[in-house]
């Protein structure tokens, strides 16, 4: 698919050879897909924090739930208020 080709190019151009890059996709205001995560740090109906390579991704809103979760992907559903990347201290894009 074209989407996969585009993202593959981004990954390849990121300059990092150490593993896959986390990927966050927002579908409208109801679903967030997150790939290559490293686990859930906090889980609640108003906030979900997911650990990623550079820090954590914070999804906040109302009525949040994890509709699907595997070792590679997870999907957060609900009324999404916002998605935020919280970096670990310092550092830019690799």
């Amino acid at each position: 698919m074209e989407r996969d080709v585009i993202w593959k190019k981004f990954r390849n151009n990121s300059g990092s050879g150490a593993g896959p890059q986390p990927l966050v996709e927002l579908f409208g205001e109801r679903r967030v897909l997150l790939e290559h995560h490293q686990g859930v740090l906090a889980y609640g109906k108003q906030e979900v924090r997911i650990k990623v390579r550079y820090g954590q991704v914070r999804v906040w809103g109302t009525g949040l739930c994890l509709s699907r979760m595997t070792a590679e992907q997870l999907v957060v559903c609900g009324h999404i208020g916002g998605v935020e990347l919280l970096r670990n201290g310092g550092g830019g894009c690799e």
Binding site: G39, V40, Y43, K45, M69, A71
Partner: peptide, 20 residues
Amino acid sequence: IPAAVSEYVRSGAELADIQE
């Protein structure tokens, strides 16, 4: 709960409809 869920998926299980 978050650590438990993370460990479950790391073991290879596929979870769906996780509701608190």
